[in-house]
Nucleic acid binder design. Structure first.
Lengths: 248, 248
DNA sequence: CAGTGGTCTAGACCACCGG
DNA sequence: CGGTGGTCTAGACCACTGT
């Protein structure tokens, strides 16, 4: 049920342990919405850590929206009207699980293709990078069709995996991490509205002219190398994008 | 043209000055994409600041995507394929200016209304908070209609301002800050696709059945008090939402 | 092994807020 | 004025990477 004592750094650093303790006190209501929580110097004494460590813990909690600070007045438990965590970069698989839905997929197309020149330019890839792996998939939530996912992966000829592997693991990002060591770290996304054409309507299945959410993603690794460019079409009646924003 | 020396804390803290210096070196290409930048201990000596201050500067730059760290190897200038700043919470006015467009508005409706009970519940407002200020506005970019903005502001009877003031200032968020001291700090947004009905089509003006991007926002102050609930409809052919995400 | 970033300490002084 | 958060220092040791 969570600790009240801080142990020397072992797996979890002290600031992480302290942040967990404070977060739990707030979530359980011990420190209610909008209430003043102990000052940094008090926490320093209570938990036998230095003020730097206290501040490191509080910095995390501020970024996640659990507390806010007011210079000269104190640190306060945040009011619980908003989501506590920012929307961070996740795979479709994680996204669905987070919504309590069972993710599914059917691979429509899998293989190396020529990278269309305009796309290669848009992504700023070198001229010699002409090939890419293309994966087109139907996406399901609790067995119901929810979207069409069209990916281009500008992988080298040594970076390969089998269609079977993707089917087995289910999550492309998980496969990229475990098999190729490519860790997804960031993405540029644009979101727009469109309507289904005949082909899309048949796949999803809906009527042509019904609204769709169109998301285009450029996904990068920790070293900011391009991992994936994807176009995803979602049924508007079954998917909405949600996000929590904070001011710097 | 940017400094190479760090001055004692005066308006801009040392870590901010250092972060600016490093950012400029990267933007000017002195430290190229993917290159190793000086280690924390080198920067400490070069700039005559403590390592804590160096790390505080680098922390900022990591969050903004200018550099990344690799434990045991060093700190690297990020590759410049992605946006450098996260999408942060902005007003429509700021959003348009950031895109190089001239924001505009026409107020369709301005006045106190009963807050619909389901909306009051959804927002978790107390029962006695029955009234709200409702503002419905057309939104323009470079004079072209781009969206319909429908806001509910659960303000107290003492928190008032004139329609004229909003027309004069242009930005609701700026008005709230300067006149009522309400600083917008965070928002929950959901984004979905829909199609225009007859009424919306006439206003925008487009044909009924054309796609629209629907954004619902719940906006809060620094103290996490609810400031605004808004529904915004954007013409899909003139507006797309874009965002940069990072993994924790 | 040396060098890197990651964690942590015990102090100091400044800027801001309230009584 | 005392108490708060904001900035900053000069150290220390740990964990990880490469050679």
């Amino acid at each position: 049920m969570g600790r009240d004592h801080i142990y020397p750094y072992d797996l979890v650093p002290k600031y992480g342990q302290l942040a967990d303790i404070i977060r739990q006190k707030i979530e359980r209501g011990e420190w209610g919405s909008g209430e003043l929580i102990p000052s940094e110097r008090e926490l320093e004494g209570m938990c036998q850590v230095s003020r730097t460590t206290v501040r490191q813990a509080l910095d995390m909690l501020v970024r996640r929206g659990y507390v806010y600070r007011d210079h000269g007045r104190g640190t306060f438990a945040a009011l619980r009207k908003f989501q506590n965590s920012l929307h961070t970069l996740t795979s479709f698989t994680q996204d669905m699980k987070g919504r309590g839905l069972q993710p599914g997929q059917k691979i429509l197309c899998f293989g190396r293709v020529e990278l269309p020149a305009p796309l290669r330019q848009q992504l700023g890839l070198p001229d010699e990078m002409t090939g890419a792996l293309r994966i087109e998939r139907m996406r399901y939530a609790d067995g119901e069709p929810i979207g069409i996912h069209d990916s281009y992966l500008p992988l080298g000829p040594d970076q390969v995996f089998e269609r079977r592997e993707l089917e087995r693991i289910g999550s492309l990002y998980e496969l990229l991490e475990t098999h190729l060591g490519l860790v997804v770290a960031e993405a540029d996304e644009t979101i727009e509205a469109t309507i289904a054409d005949q082909h899309e309507a048949t796949l999803l299945p809906i009527n042509p002219g019904e609204p769709l959410l169109l998301m285009k993603c450029t996904v990068g690794s920790q070293q900011r190398q391009l991992i994936e460019y994807a176009k995803v079409l979602y049924r508007a009646d079954r998917y909405q994008y949600s996000i929590h924003l904070m001011r710097d």
